[in-house]
């Protein structure tokens, strides 16, 4: 029997594998901190998908055409599917879905702050598809290169579907920006309300991000929050301007030297306030999830009882 390796040796091997670009798989040795960070990120991501069903689901009943209604239902359904897929990825790290959901319902787990903002008009559905899913794709495309195999593969699949949502959202806003005066106003109002929260989706600035350094060393993330945010701004600003929409930032300007669109200061106080639970919809979102969970309790009990009955029947 070979001699037991020390923690330092195992860590060195682990980091060498990551340096070589290998994926880490569920049964492989990994530092506790790596496991902890991944559980944190993947479960937050899964919760975001599930909570994210609510603000968009709220407009399914009001969708203005049958085709739009079907597309929106399909989109929210995809989010449920992503949640399911991500909970599986988290389970590969030794936690279970029930435990993660319990933490969410107890208000102990985080999910994307963006879903604590309200959807107030139909144009919000288009703006979420374009702006919010656009920001999410930026982040998820990066995570598709993440060192943890199951997460990386989940991201590849999720990005493919998100790209549809993004295209549909962009199509809607493009139509509304060129539509009737009321539609145009709806589109502008949606941009006014979603612009800053969408930029905050990339997380706190690098100077304040407590996790970034470790996550980058282990290639869980390969770009910083600020890098991704800037790339996103550079891509999307010209597209909004081309439609004649105004970006709600008086300081926004193009910097010839760097080729960047430079934004004014982000209100990080608002970001932290919403994270702490004091955004416009935090309480309502959690309450909706709790209600679905509580009202579904008898259904889950019946499922369990029925399954047990089937097992007994098959044994006899």
């Amino acid at each position: 029997m070979s001699e037991e390796k020390t923690y330092e040796e195992k860590l060195a091997e682990f980091e060498a594998r990551i340096q070589r670009g290998e994926k880490i798989e569920p049964g492989d040795w990994m530092p506790d901190e790596y496991r902890r960070q991944l559980i944190r990120m993947i479960s937050q991501h899964a919760h975001s998908e599930v909570v994210g069903m609510l603000p968009e689901g709220a407009w399914i009943p009001h969708a203005p055409t049958l085709r739009r209604k079907m597309i929106l239902i399909a989109k929210v359904q995809d989010e449920g599917g992503h949640g399911q897929y991500l909970y599986h990825a988290a389970e590969s790290l030794g936690v279970d879905r029930e435990e993660l959901i319990a933490a969410l319902l107890a208000g102990k787990a985080k999910y994307s702050n963006i879903f604590n903002y309200p959807t107030l008009t139909w144009a919000d559905i288009g703006m979420i598809g374009w702006l919010v899913d656009g920001a999410a794709i930026k982040n998820q495309t990066m995570l598709a290169h993440s060192s943890y195999g199951p997460y990386s593969r989940a991201m590849v699949r999720i990005c493919a579907e998100e790209t549809f949502h993004y295209k549909q959202g962009k199509e809607m806003i493009t139509i509304y920006a060129k539509g009737t005066p009321e539609q145009r106003q709806m589109a502008q109002d949606a941009l006014d309300r979603w612009w800053w929260p969408a930029l905050m989706m990339f997380g706190p600035p690098d100077s304040q991000s407590i996790h970034t350094k470790t996550l980058m060393r282990w290639k869980v993330k390969i770009k910083t929050n600020d890098q991704l945010r800037q790339e996103f701004i550079n891509e999307i600003v010209p597209e909004f301007l081309a439609l004649g929409l105004k970006i709600p930032d008086p300081d926004l300007h193009y910097d010839e030297e760097t080729g960047n669109w430079v934004i004014g200061p982000i209100d990080w106080d608002e970001f932290w306030r919403v994270i702490r639970g004091n955004g416009p919809m935090n309480r309502d979102r959690l309450e909706a999830r709790r209600r679905a969970h509580e009202e579904g309790a008898w259904v889950r009990e019946a499922l369990e009882a029925y399954a047990q009955r089937q097992r007994q029947a098959s044994m006899n």
Binding site: V50, M53, L54, G57, I60, P61, I73, A74, V76, Q77, G80, G81, G83, Q84, Y87, A288, R291, A292, E295, G296, A297, V299, R300, L303
Partner: peptide, 16 residues
Amino acid sequence: EWTGHAPILEEDIAIA
């Protein structure tokens, strides 16, 4: 109307 409010995630997906 059930989308996002079903008793289990699998049924959110099915009913959608």
